[in-house]
Structures are given as structure tokens and as C-alpha cells.
Design a protein around this nucleic acid. Structure first.
Lengths: 160, 160
DNA sequence: ATGAATGCAAAGCGTTTGCATCTGG
DNA sequence: CCAGATGCAAACGCTTTGCATTCAT
């Protein structure tokens, strides 16, 4: 997770938005004020987020937005392969934006404080591809969550 | 997934039950008709199962059992590390029994027919352990789900 | 007898849907 | 114009909980 300047971020968001609206048009779907804000904020924030959290953020820009719209937009993003739903076992689905440059990452969850870290390991991905190929399948997407405990006893994660 | 004789299966169930009831006693919890049946069927069936499916199965032995009891028992099994909750994205949680001899397996889900297959790959596990160790963590449990498409066009899985 | 477990029904919670209204292309 | 999008509220499906009753120890 390297640093990213404001311009780079805006550029990335812009690219994603453009790709998204291209798909919308292909599918004969529309661009609306609400949809625009939701999608833009989703790409801008660029992290796994719950419908709830996204709604809260989006309402700062468009206060009268309904949660149904957020759910519908997230569903749309998933269908169009711009987001991946994730379940971390706390009862609500999180959505991870997919930006083309970054292959889909995996998660390491601290069982002490529930902090969620991201990682991306090529050797792991290679092995997965091999396993699935052996079974005569082709991976479309994966969900890898490692629940782990911090080795360092004095680690701040040792909250609970 | 090797074959297993009836005796072996019964023996495995017996072992698991014994371990479970030992823990119960340690925790000052009780054995009841309902709990016994649920836990026994859960270990016997020995596959990821939803509360719903388990209830249906259990009711063939104890018709008056309530679903709350099944949920409570599953929760107990999870707390005591005899089961792992899994979410495959279809809205309901499945529970996987943990039997000590078999390390926790992973899943390959066919995106065409939703069939869920299990696998266990040592190289994969090794790599995971290495990744997590690098981050100064120790894996407690993992959740790996690969959503894939069958390569064989004539495969019966190509249902949808 | 006493704390735990059960069954039932009701409540909870995140998510989806029906419908009247609005809006973008 | 008119299919698609929105907002609201109601419905949904899975899961949890409150409570009176039953049961294991």
C-alpha cells in the first residue's frame, strides 16, 4: 500500500468512473445525481466499506439519499465487476472496490482487535491457480481471510 | 476425501462427542436430550451445514426440537471450537465441523451450479503460514473460498 | 433447589422489494 | 415520452432474545 498523491487519486477515481459509465451505457442504464455520488465516493474512499458506512459518507454530499439506493448501487457495482462483496462474520457485508491496476487482495484479520489488514502475495496466488487448474476449473474470484493473533505480546492490537 | 467405514465413522463421532462433553463439564454446562441429538448429528453428518438443514435432520430424531435450540447449540459448538462458521454469500451461514485429525479444509465453489467442493493443499497452507509469520502474526483459522468456472464446456455443472 | 436449557413467539438486523413518483436520454 | 431510478415503507430471511417452563446435576 504505497503513498498516493491527491492527483493520482483523482486520476484513479476518474478512470474508474469512466469505465463504470461506459458499462452503464452499454447496458442501457442511466447516470443520476444519486448514483454518481455513491459511485464516486465508493471509488474515492477505495476501501472495503459497508452499505451503512457508505450511506453515511454519501449523505454528506446528498442528504436525501435513501439506503435502498445505496444497496441498489452496490449491487450494480458488484454485477458490473467494480466491487466484490466480503463477509467478515460481523453480520454485515462489506464491499471492496476493484481497481484494475491492483489485483484483488486478501485479508488478515486480527482476532484481538478485529483490525483488518490487506495483503497480496504472488506465490499464494500462483498456488491457488495451480490447485484450481488441477481440478479443471478456472478461478474467477477468491475470498481469503486469515484470522490471526499478533505475536508481539505488547502489540497495541492486544486490545481485548 | 478417502472412504470411511461405518465403524470408523462411529468411532470418530464418539471421540468428538466425548471431547465436546468434557468441555461442557469443564464449563459447567449441561447435557440434554436435544443438545445430544444436535451435536451427534452434526458430527455424524460431518459436512458444512446450515442451521436449517441441521434442524431438518435433527427433527427426524427429535421432532419437537425448536430452531432456537439448534442456533444456540451451533453457537456453543463454535465457541468451543468444534465448528467454524462459513459464509458462501447465499445469505445463510454454514457450519463446518472440526475434527482433530483433519486439518481445516478450504472450498472451491462452482459459479455455475453453486456446488461446493472441498480441498486441502499443503503448499497453500505453508505459504499462508509464511505470509502471516512475516507480518508477525500466527494463524488461528482461515477462510479460503475460490469461486471458479468449470473448464469443461460439457460439464454437468454448467447448469445455469 | 437452582442454574442451565428449551420452546415458543416476538424482536432484531441487514438487505430486498413494491409502488407511486420523478428523471435522464 | 418512457424505461429506468429514486425514496419511502413494508416485507423478507436468517438469527437472536425474552420469558415462562422444564430439566440436569
Amino acid at each position: 500500500m504505497g503513498e498516493m498523491s491527491e492527483e493520482e487519486r483523482e486520476e484513479r477515481v476518474e478512470e474508474a468512473l469512466q469505465a463504470f459509465y461506459e458499462r452503464l451505457q452499454e447496458a442501457g442504464l442511466k447516470s443520476t445525481k444519486q448514483r454518481d455520488v455513491i459511485v464516486e465516493r465508493f471509488f474515492w474512499l477505495d476501501k472495503h466499506i459497508s452499505a451503512d458506512e457508505l450511506l453515511e459518507d454519501v449523505r454528506q454530499h446528498q442528504p436525501r439519499i435513501g439506503y435502498a439506493t445505496v444497496y441498489r448501487t452496490l449491487k450494480l457495482l458488484v454485477e458490473q465487476d467494480f466491487a466484490v462483496p466480503k463477509d467478515f462474520g460481523d453480520g454485515q457485508t462489506r464491499y471492496d472496490p476493484i481497481h484494475n491496476q491492483d489485483p484483488q487482495h486478501d485479508h488478515l484479520i486480527c482476532i484481538d482487535c478485529r483490525k483488518i489488514m490487506e495483503f497480496n502475495d504472488q506465490q499464494l496466488n500462483d498456488r491457488i491457480q495451480a490447485i484450481v487448474a488441477d481440478l479443471s476449473y478456472t478461478v474467477r474470484r477468491k475470498k481469503i481471510e486469515l484470522y490471526a493473533e499478533c505475536d508481539d505480546e505488547s502489540c497495541p492490537h492486544k486490545a481485548s
